[in-house]
Design a protein around this nucleic acid. Structure first.
Lengths: 216, 216, 216, 216
DNA sequence: TATGAATGAGTGTTCATTCAT
DNA sequence: CATGAATGAACACTCATTCAT
């Protein structure tokens, strides 16, 4: 039974659960594990981690939220850290927008996608917790990078590379720095506690694409 | 007795401790409160918070690290949250570089200053913990913004405004987006797990100042 | 959540434990809660409260005395106050003597019953602690009144009312004052530190009855 | 400086402080101890003990209430137990009413005096705490008996003996039981949680006296 | 003499984890 | 397979008492 709505959106997909610490015995003897239970646990863990942070998230709360008992969780995951990483590994963000060939519009679309993730309740807290736990549970940060950060950066980089190859950009443009500036602007703005204007992605893209200096 | 080296750098200055919940009585009666103990507690708290995060940081560990007993801490700080905020408030980053009038050099200097803060051991974990604790202990994030984030943003903005006023920048430049892109690039790069090239600030400043697009 | 239990039960040593803050799930799934442990905890709590008083009674000591761990206690009782009230609620004094119709003998029998309670080791200390805690933990006193004081008063009053109805006592006899004088004599004697003579109840009953009986 | 009104009434007298654990050095060298401070400490201790009970009363709170520092207290009293007993020893209740020769009126007057003590805020809590602490700090109960209980019992007994000697009472009346019934009625009524009628002492005296008086 | 600072030993409570059914 | 019961280790915080000024 679901106790609360899951953190993930409806168009979220769950990836294959091949990261479990305690795989079910091969052969199909006995009652098979419920896939719905598997998913409920991972959803609950993800939600708790986002809302309360890894350190504060409690197995008890996850069990209650997923509507299962604690041993049911431990049967699937070796411990708190493994549960958290499994939840993160299973988490799939919304599909990134497909590039259209219009560089500016594509960049804005990707930043809009990022914004939805960051503005989701506790989205920044989730980023915070993986950073805060780096020393204690480094897998969280690596997984976060692999699952959430890297795809977005790749998408941005793809758009920029295409633009460069088509001659839209300067040959010597540092695309790495550009990608960092584009996505980082969100983090910086949030950390500064400043409100996001309605059409926030546009000015950022404009700055990065066009620069601040007066044209010759 | 100091158990560990302090987190703060040698050129760090400690700000006035006016956030204490139980201020020492004015006048000089009785045994004076040891200033070395005051500092040791705040240093230890800051270090524990950076290394383990606010949720995991324990008063016991802070007491041990500072070489004092727990009641000595509670004499000065009303609770864990107050101790953490006091440590944050007392933490003074290195002085920001003074602007020279050379826009590009000034921006690079400020970003270099930021980089030293972020690359300090557990620097990003500190940012992570204030973000992760936003729901539970919002004072941490607001204090962090006030003490660390805002001054840097103001410095960056000052340099950019001067440049705009002197005609160096386009009149319509969105300085807010530019500041976010400049400092955010660090966060994004760290979160991506990518190494920082030797002269990292330069490409970022170049992108923001000059833009990616080919000039007309 | 229930703070007090209903007024059920007449003869069983331990009343039904429906005052628990975290009741066991109905149905028989999972490991059943040990009834021996339930009882051991309540007994230990009652003993500690009588011996050391509510304020001094520690969960640690109760756990040790009951031979269980502290979380085992917290599984059953929401906190120290709830544990103490549960112990008090579960405590059942010896059954009161049944009235025989002989007024004087019945009163003496009830006072003898009271005396056994008061002379039990720490019996008066138990009364003391519920009085001392009135400001801090008023449930203790109300439960004590409900479970221990009220039944005895009712029994005494019943005997006196029967005697009055049968014409043995004066019509205008103040039964309330008489009941108070009868049971209060014990408290006063104890508080005075005076030894209880062998047949103590008899003189008290004689003093009080003499005042109530119809004059010749 | 007095922080709060003292528990004791204005017509309360303080007895000689010859129970101090640490008497001042003989000879009058150095600054003499302030008698006002002595009294403030004892008043504060008495009030705290009545309000919170011996176990919960804290030296810190007493110091604050008395407007002194903790070492000032420890200079005069060897520890918490000694402070509490000193406070109790120094406590003098209102003077008992002088007997007039009218037995019934004298008894009522003494019970009225008792009632004022019992109904004083925390009066019963004070009785409770000395009972609760009997195992831990038996001096409290002995002192309470000596200072508060015994004088009242003696007064009651005096009135009754005079009445017996003057032929008002039966020769064989058990005065001990009668005294216990008279004062105990208060304790019992309070413990039962029943309200005290306006003229409460009268019915109690009537019940007890009726039993003692020679029949017509 | 008096102060404020400092402390060792606890307090009630919670949590990740394992056990018994 | 799944449950509820049980636990060792920790947690933030407090108190009676002593120290240094």
């Amino acid at each position: 039974m679901r106790l609360t709505a899951p953190l993930v959106d409806s168009d979220t997909e769950r990836s294959r659960k091949d990261t479990e610490a305690r795989p079910p015995a091969s052969g199909a003897r006995g009652r098979p594990r419920s896939e719905a239970t598997d998913a409920a646990i991972l959803d609950a863990a993800m939600a708790e981690m986002a809302e309360r942070g890894y350190a504060r998230m409690s197995i008890d709360a996850i069990a209650a939220r997923a509507g299962v008992s604690k041993p049911t969780i431990y049967l699937r995951h070796a411990g708190k850290a493994e549960l958290a990483t499994a939840a993160l590994a299973a988490f799939q963000q919304r599909a990134l927008p497909r590039p259209t060939g219009d560089t500016r519009a594509d960049l804005v679309a990707i930043l809009r996608h990022l914004r939805r993730g960051v503005e989701r309740p506790f989205g920044m807290a989730m980023i915070g917790t993986v950073l805060a736990e780096e020393a204690h549970t480094p897998e969280l940060l690596s997984l976060f990078r692999e699952r959430l950060v890297a795809p977005r950066r790749a998408a941005l980089r793809g758009v920029l590379e295409a633009a460069r190859d088509s001659g839209e950009l300067r040959e010597d443009a540092d695309l790495d720095a550009a990608v960092a500036a584009l996505v980082g602007a969100y983090y910086a703005q949030y950390l500064a506690g400043r409100p996001f204007p309605r059409a926030w992605p546009t000015p950022v893209v404009d700055v990065v694409l066009g620069g601040l200096c007066r044209r010759a």
